[in-house]
Design a protein around this nucleic acid. Structure first.
Lengths: 347, 347
DNA sequence: GCCGTTTTGCCAACCGGTTGCCATTCCGGG
DNA sequence: CCCGGAATGGCAACCGGTTGGCAAAACGGC
């Protein structure tokens, strides 16, 4: 008679049919919902024969467990959050990919959010995500140490490219890469360098600068910091005038994006790279090997960092043991944007 | 006495303090949870004075509404899903960014999943996401029409770069861009073209090919299809031998990635671009303007497509009216990988 | 046939919100 | 002073799972 299926009020919009629940299966089979739940999740808890019937009914009804309904009593969402400063920054491609793979393998869904380089937006995203997530990965966080500590107290949290006392983090060791890069520049005959620095709130930019500041003088080279600037093509381009004015023969940029931006500005201004200015980038992003000339860079293996961070969270979530963080370190990649200094830049 | 807070079992791992609930606020104020709920969500439903007290208590306890608990009775998660073939493909950067911005503006969280060019994985992701999401955006879906139709019946769904009858979709109109590109090549004097095609399951690749097949002869040019190939640098590189063997003077690649791959292969083989071979790409991805030479390409405004798709879903979710899809069309971008044909490619 | 143990399934409470409906209070008007 | 209606807050059911505890059933040994 009720060919129109008057039934209970439809959920959602339009007239879509509601998803099957364990109650549907139970009713169908004359069992209790709790039995269905156990059959599906506690292997061996119910009779094998019954379990088989339940599984078949579930398949027939195309049943999927409702993640929210499960999360409510268990407190586990099987979801991990990843917050980064800028989705469109190529540095993070491989990081996201690595994190995604490991998360998926461990049965977690990864939710990606973007803070657009703003600490405020980041705090907001973190706050929102924290509710619906089992753990959080913060990449190059712009938050202050205290805020990060507070977040870490609420849910398992791992940092990437940032170190905060008492909070687990994975950060590639830049020292080997920087040493090799400086050796390379020294051998070529460079004696005056500049560091084109990134955002002032970037912990990573400071680390790179401090390392350069430490290592350059040991090789008899002078070094100055130029910046801070936005970690983008534009940021690099904007640094050009100051680089030129500084009279240095080689520049290490905070990242490849800035290096490429600087490279462009040089080309526009008729400054030849590498004969008039050597440029070294950071990260080895997609695209840095098909600029002209290809960018010499210091590769930070962020795919590994992404994998490792998620590994740590998953481990913290399952047992609580310390899984001995794998060490990842940066690696110098020689390409063609560096050469022996020729004519001085300022004529 | 209970200075150790024996209380109910802690949720989650470690000894993190549980989040405040509306019950905490209610108890604190001697009110009912339902009053708290209404005070926070139904403006005007409770006495302004009471509402004020509740808001203050909520702030003091740092209360955040639990999204899962809310989603359960309402069926609304305030989450949108976005499934694409390959996160690391630069084409999608701006698309993701655009979608994210619109989603955030409308109060939705965007969950991004990757299908790795596999229809099976895509189906699985879609199935999993569908439970916890209010709507879904499928980018360049590898699923067959029937599966897509089935998904669309369960939740609001919008396609990007794919057309399926009865399912809303946004796909940039490539015709204007292709016409301009062909005009450009014709004026330069090219008479024989090749299309380096993408994956055979890519609807978009077929559309581009059909359009070329239609338009090239009208301009007195011959055209052949070479492929299919992977839509990656490698895919482009692998097409090189066949392009060379075909003897054409200009190639239109399925996308910029393949164009760049082909460009590299040319350089390796000592074939000069553009004097010996003209190359046109698609999409205008990050990086296509700093290759050497910069790639002439047909830009598909995927940021707009991403925005538009999310707009449509949000509209479907809020009212159900048809928001008159905004038309987005591809645009020819002339750079330096195209020139008049010089010496024939095969000597 | 009896008893103890194990297996198997169900009851009911709970997670943290939302919401229909009802009871009470408050208000002004007649 | 009485009445009707609006304003306000509470009760209880519900969303769809999970889980501790228990009772019934099955089983096995003597």
């Amino acid at each position: 008679m009720n060919q129109e299926q008057p039934g209970p009020a439809r959920r959602g919009h339009g007239n879509r049919k509601p998803a099957a629940t364990i109650y549907d299966i139970a009713r169908h089979l004359g069992l209790s919902p709790s039995t269905v739940s156990r059959a599906l999740n506690k292997p061996g808890r119910v009779n094998a024969k019954t379990e088989q019937r339940i599984r078949e009914a579930a398949a027939a009804l195309n049943y999927r467990t409702n993640p929210m309904a499960r999360a409510l009593p268990t407190g586990r969402t099987n979801t991990l959050g990843l917050i980064l400063t800028d989705i469109t920054n190529p540095v993070y491609f491989t990081l996201v990919r690595g994190a995604e793979r490991v998360a998926a393998a461990a049965g977690y869904t990864l939710v990606i959010a973007e803070s657009q380089e703003s600490g405020e937006l980041e705090a907001e995203s973190a706050e929102r995500l924290l509710q619906s997530v089992d753990g959080l990965v913060l990449v190059a966080s712009r938050l202050d140490d205290a805020s990060i500590g507070a977040l870490a107290e609420r849910k398992p949290l791992v940092l990437i490219n940032r170190v905060v006392d008492g909070v687990p983090g994975v950060v590639p060791d830049v020292v080997p890469g920087i040493r090799d890069a400086l050796d390379h520049l020294a051998v070529l005959g460079h004696t005056s360098l500049a560091y084109l620095s990134g955002p002032s709130v970037s912990w990573m930019s400071r680390v790179r600068w401090e390392t350069l500041l430490d290592e350059a003088p040991r090789r008899g080279m002078t070094i100055v910091e130029i910046g801070p600037g936005a970690p983008t093509l534009d940021g690099g381009q904007e640094g050009f005038r100051r680089v030129r004015a500084s009279g240095v023969s080689a520049v290490v940029a905070y990242n490849d994006l800035m290096a490429i931006g600087l490279l462009r500005a040089c080309r526009c201004a008729g400054v030849d790279v590498p004969s008039q200015l050597s440029i070294v980038g950071f990260d080895d992003i997609f695209g840095s090997d098909f600029t002209s000339p290809p960018i010499t860079t210091i590769r930070t293996p962020l795919d590994l960092a992404g994998e490792e961070a998620v590994h740590q969270i998953v481990a913290a979530l399952s047992e609580g043991d310390v899984p001995e963080p794998r060490r990842v370190s940066a690696q110098f990649v020689r390409r063609e944007s560096t050469a022996a200094p020729g004519r001085p830049l300022v004529v």
